[in-house]
Design a protein around this nucleic acid. Structure first.
Lengths: 110, 110
DNA sequence: ACAATATATTACCGGCTGTTCATATAGTGA
DNA sequence: TCACTATATGAACAGCCGGTAATATATTGT
C-alpha cells in the first residue's frame, strides 16, 4: 500500500466530489454563483420543484458549499466555498481539451 | 432559467466529478501518480482484488483520466489528465480550511 | 387562534453502481 | 496444441441516491 493519502482522507475527498457529481446540484450552484437567492427564487430560476431544491440545498449546506440566511419566511442561500468556480472551470477546460484531442484524432486517423 | 452553463455541459461536468467520487478510484489514481504501473502491481499496492482494479481502470480510461500501454501479458496504466492532482489538492485544502473553521467555532462558542 | 405562505422533512420507488465470483480472452513458452 | 499467466468481462447481489408526493414546521398578518 504505497499511497500518499490515507484512506480516511480519500473518503472525505470522494464525498466532496460526490456532492458535485449531480447536474441538479451544479445547476443550483451555477445559479447561486450569480448572487444570493431565496428557495422560491431558485425554484423559479431552475424550473425544479420546491422539495427537490430544498433537499439539494440541505445537502450543499451540510457539506459546506453554501450557507443560509433566514429572513422572515424566506431562506436565502449563497455559495460559500470559493473553490466551486475553480473546480468547475478545471473540469470544463479539461472537457474542451478532450474535445480538441478527439477532433484532432478524427482528422488525422481518417 | 438564468444559468450560465447549459444543461448538457452540467451533465458532462457532473459525470467527471462522479468518476472522482469514489475512494477506490482516488486510491488507484493516487498510487498511479507515483508512476506507471501494471494491473498486478496496482493489485499489490492497493490490496484490492484484480477484477475490481481492472473494472475501475476501465472506467478511468473510458473517461480519459488514465491511459494504457500494453506490453506482452501486461497492461501498464498511467495518469494522463494533468488536472487530477490539482483537483484533489483543492479538495484537500478546502477540507483543511473547514477543519480549521470548525476548531475556531468550537474554541469560541464554548 | 386562524389562514396563508415559505421552507423543510418523511416515506417511497426506481435506477444506478461498487464489489465479488466465475469465466472469457489474450499472450507466452514448451 | 497445451498449460500458464495477466487482464478483461459478465452476472448477481446489496446498498445508495435522486425525484416526488404528502406532510410537517415556522413565520407573518388579521
Amino acid at each position: 500500500m504505497a499511497q500518499r493519502l490515507p484512506q480516511e482522507i480519500l473518503e472525505l475527498v470522494a464525498e466532496r466530489f460526490r456532492i458535485l457529481a449531480e447536474p441538479t446540484r451544479l445547476l443550483i450552484l451555477d445559479v447561486l454563483l450569480g448572487g444570493e437567492l431565496s428557495v422560491s427564487e431558485l425554484v423559479e430560476e431552475t424550473g425544479l420543484n420546491q422539495a427537490n431544491v430544498s433537499k439539494h440545498l440541505g445537502i450543499l449546506r451540510a457539506s459546506g458549499f453554501v450557507d443560509r440566511r433566514k429572513e422572515g419566511l424566506y431562506a436565502f442561500y449563497r455559495v460559500t466555498d470559493p473553490s466551486v468556480s475553480r473546480l468547475c472551470e478545471i473540469m470544463c477546460s479539461r472537457l474542451e481539451a478532450q474535445a480538441e484531442e478527439q477532433s484532432a484524432l478524427l482528422a488525422t486517423g481518417d
